[in-house]
Design a protein around this nucleic acid. Structure first.
Length: 811
RNA sequence: GCGGUCGUGGCGGAACUGGCAGACGCGCAAGACUAAGGAUCUUGUGGGUAACUCCAUGCAGGUUCAAUUCCUGUCGACCGCACCA
């Protein structure tokens, strides 16, 4: 079969018959199967795209044949840094390169033969999409979930630009390798932390890989502990967070992060230390990520001269500044217990601070620092309590005294969405001298991204230099005002795109409640695990926020999630241009076509594992399809002999068929395509064998061949359409129902069992259906291979595992 | 450092809930058909042994009638987080 022309023929046919277009009339029966959309950074699809989209398309086709109205859209996540960086390097405008890449990729995706519903295509960099991304921003702003604050950004001094976190590799700029600094800028944030608890709790409700859920769980980082208030000599209060209130009597000093707002007050109170404090704050600010990355880094800090009062003992404890305390976590201040915390211990040792042991190992000598649970000592009335008892008791006491109490903390930080970059959706906000920050009225959306922008780095957001863009009138007072020069993180674009697909052409709204509730959530979502803590978390957050704003009625965007594995280079490393181990799918497509390539991707790897590329097996897949073709064509051309009932051989074939169907269905549902295909191969072997042994072609055999095409169709779609036609069928094989296993055909009169004596296999025996355990024991005991082992011994126990084995325990 | 995943033939990989380890395929070997075979078909293929059988799922233990599967320890590979108080 000339695969290339066959594939072209059916792709055209499918387009003409609208086979892949979702039929809204059947929406009650919908199945929303979604692959993560493509980033159009390169012109060609790479193996990873094929591996994500090919097998998932087979899944979608399989479900379609099972009777679902499958919605499988595709689009492009088209804003973002690579296009802009490419532009900076080559001078080609991001819009131009992106559009060109999209055109190429669309064609390649069509050549793949996946049943994408192109009528629902979305491209995030187009006005009719980012208009609604901006709308989303405004809703979050209205709801108080978008706010502005000063925050540190990654700053590359050489490129004179802000870098996104993903552009910082080991503390260095991914492009020029210079050390990245941190710089304070006012930025927009989304308040994802408001949803920390629900994001964590609802992980239990979704069918996602456990490791992904665990990653999100760790990322959210819930920890329960206690807040403790220390009165500062200046009259201020210092609140610290601790998970170990049981060590409260061991506090030796209090540490503030260098960025802590109280630092200036303390400095003013102790001018004698002002210089040292200033120096340390500057030192900490200049410390770059490389230093901070190193956990072995020596602890540094400075004494402020000030003291605070211990809430329970009323003792004076000194206040230090140290950058091992992170301003962004907890309260930005900690109580230091040198005897029971490794970091505090290290710091205390370095600065010769006292240590007070308050926890003792049960019954033993205690070497410091001792960070495990133990029995309280030197803790007044709390002496003798265990760790957990003490944590409760001390928290209760603090609450009573109004000096703190139980508190839950999260590691999750708010989502910074401002990007000082050009190629993104402009933030729909206006800065007016008189009215402050004013949102762009919804009727004025989109805030269009101008084309004629100098995107080469100047140290400012590129849009800031575009006068026409920047100047505007304040919607509130009508006076002159300026637009926000930043653009939105591309993760904002992708945080809601699944809601847009079903209404891709709605120009009145991003989506409607009615359609969204009907079509979403996505039933099966397939994409890379690298998005575990970014896209997948953001989309969950936005879904919940939209729900709380009344736009949708469901809690989670993706009911079931599957991660495909990664296809590595032949050398076992990740494919990369610098390694020179990139495998391009193009030459394989050229030689074998899409079906064979896709089939090989499904058969040669465990889908969720992936593995090193190796093309040894592609030929064998081509051979396999050749065999199928010969068998089908021969059968189609043979005269059919009518018969009544099934012969013994046909019964066996019927068993083989139903066994195959049962397992294919189960495995395809689990995205275990390699075993699904293995079962199809076995079935083909059985058909082949039957055909070799029989001159005539029975009606039953022909039906078996047709079922084979139905079984194989999702996995080799063009190929099976062609053979289906050769068999004289006028309608698409994808209008057929996927075969269903007939359980009756799977019941055998007798089953082969392994017979063991004392767990060692001695024989195989055919056991008739319905024999009792006693009958079985009598029967196998008499077997010539078994009997000698039982001579002179008694059978103490006979274990029968239905359909598998019999184990006689003798002694 | 913390958390997680995974170690199975020459290779890719199977093994559903603890139940015949190595499905399916590649590769290899032998044979058939052939003028020819890098086509096709048939058969064989974890290792040792002449054989009975024995040894084999990284390594060492344990639980069990039975362990690739469960538990403990250990080695190795990969991934995520990383001063989170």
């Amino acid at each position: 079969m000339d695969m290339k022309s066959v594939e072209k023929k059916w792709q055209e046919q499918w387009e003409k018959s609208k086979l892949n277009v979702f039929n809204k009339k059947n929406a009650d029966n919908k199945l929303y199967v979604l692959e993560m959309f493509s980033y159009p950074s390169g012109a060609n699809l790479h193996v990873g795209h094929w591996y994500n989209y090919g097998p998932t398309d087979s899944y979608a086709r399989f479900k379609k044949m099972q009777g679902y109205e499958v919605f499988q859209p595709m689009g492009f996540d088209a804003f973002g840094l690579p296009a802009e960086n490419f532009a900076i390097k080559t001078g080609i405008h991001p819009k131009d390169s992106t559009e060109k890449n999209i055109a190429t990729m669309e064609q390649q995706l069509k050549n793949m033969g996946a049943m994408f519903d192109w009528t629902a295509e979305i491209i995030t960099c187009q006005e009719d999409y980012y208009k609604w991304t901006q709308w989303l921003f405004l809703q979050l702003y209205k709801k108080g979930l978008a706010y502005r604050k000063e925050a540190l950004v990654n700053w590359c001094p050489d490129c004179e630009t802000v870098l996104a976190n993903e552009q910082v590799i080991d503390g260095k700029c991914e492009r020029c390798n210079s050390v990245v600094l941190r710089k304070d800028m006012t930025q927009w944030f989304f308040k994802i932390t408001d949803y920390a608890e629900e994001l964590l709790a609802d992980l239990d409700k979704i069918d996602w890989p456990e490791k992904t859920k665990l990653m999100q769980k760790n990322w959210i980082g819930r920890s329960t502990g206690c807040e403790v208030v220390f009165d500062c000599e200046t009259g201020d209060k210092i609140t610290v967070f601790t998970t170990r209130p049981d060590t409260l009597f061991g506090v030796n000093y209090v540490v503030l992060a260098p960025e802590h707002p109280l630092v200036n007050t303390l400095k003013a109170a102790h001018p004698e230390n002002a210089q040292a404090i200033d120096e340390y704050v500057r030192y900490a600010a200049e410390a770059n990520d490389i230093d901070r990355l190193s956990t072995s880094r020596e602890k540094t800090g400075v004494f402020t001269g000030a003291y605070a009062v211990h809430p329970l003992t009323n003792q004076q404890v000194p206040i230090y500044l140290a950058d091992y305390v992170l301003y962004s976590y907890g309260t930005g201040a900690v109580m230091a217990v040198a005897a029971h915390d490794e970091r505090d211990f290290e710091f205390a040792k370095k600065y010769n601070l006292p240590m007070t042991q308050v926890i003792q190992k049960k019954g033993g000598e205690t070497a410091l620092p001792f960070c495990e649970d133990g029995i309280l000592v030197n803790s007044g009335e709390f002496n003798g309590l265990s760790g957990s008892e003490a944590r409760d008791a001390i928290a209760v006491r603090l609450t009573k005294l109004g000096k703190g109490g139980k508190k839950v903390n999260y590691r999750l930080r708010d989502w910074s969405v401002s990007r000082q970059r050009y190629w993104g959706a402009p933030i729909p906000m206006i800065h007016c001298e008189k009215c402050g920050v004013v949102p762009v009225p919804e009727k004025d959306l989109p805030v269009k991204l101008p084309y004629d922008v100098e995107f080469r780095p100047t140290g400012k957001s590129p849009l800031a230099s575009h006068e026409k863009f920047m100047h505007c009138t304040c919607p509130k007072c009508g006076g002159a005002a300026e637009r926000d020069p930043d653009t939105l993180d591309t993760f904002v674009c992708s945080s809601w795109y699944f809601l847009r697909y079903p209404e891709a052409h709605n120009d009145k709204a991003p989506f409607t409640k009615e359609v969204a509730n009907k079509m979403s959530p996505v039933d099966v979502y397939v994409g890379g695990y690298e998005h575990a803590c970014m896209h997948l978390l953001y989309a969950r957050f936005i879904t919940k926020a939209l729900r709380d704003m009344g736009y949708i009625d469901f809690d989670e965007p993706f009911k079931r999630l599957v991660h495909q594995g990664i296809i590595l280079g032949p050398d076992g490393n990740r494919m990369s241009k610098s390694r020179g181990n990139v495998v391009s799918p193009d030459k394989y497509i050229d030689e074998y076509g899409s079906d064979i390539f896709r089939l090989y991707l499904m058969f040669g790897f465990s889908y969720t594992e992936g593995g090193p590329w190796n093309d040894d097996g592609i030929k064998s897949i081509a051979k396999f399809l050749d065999r199928v073709e010969r068998l089908v064509v021969k059968t189609a051309e043979s005269p059919i002999v009518k018969s009544e009932g099934l012969t013994k051989a046909e019964k066996e074939l019927n068993y083989a068929k139903n066994f195959a169907v049962k397992n294919i269905v189960r495995d395809a549902e689990a995205f275990s395509f390699n075993t699904s295909i293995a079962r199809i191969m076995e079935y083909v072997n059985a058909l082949q064998k039957h055909d070799n042994e029989h001159e005539e072609t029975s009606e039953f055999f022909k039906d078996c061949i047709l079922d084979l095409l139905r079984m194989l169709a999702p996995f080799a779609p063009h190929f099976c359409e062609e053979l289906w036609e050769i068999c004289g069928k006028k309608t698409s094989v994808f209008k057929e129902a996927y075969p269903v296993a007939d359980e009756k055909a799977l019941v055998k009169d007798e089953t082969e069992y392994a017979v063991q004596v004392n767990s060692k296999i001695k024989a195989k025996a055919l056991i008739a259906e319905g024999m009792s355990n006693e009958e079985i024991q009598t029967f196998v005991s008499a077997l010539p291979e078994v009997a000698p082992f039982l001579e002179g011994k008694t059978v103490k126990k006979c274990i029968v595992v239905k359909g598998r084995l019999i184990n006689l325990i003798v002694g």
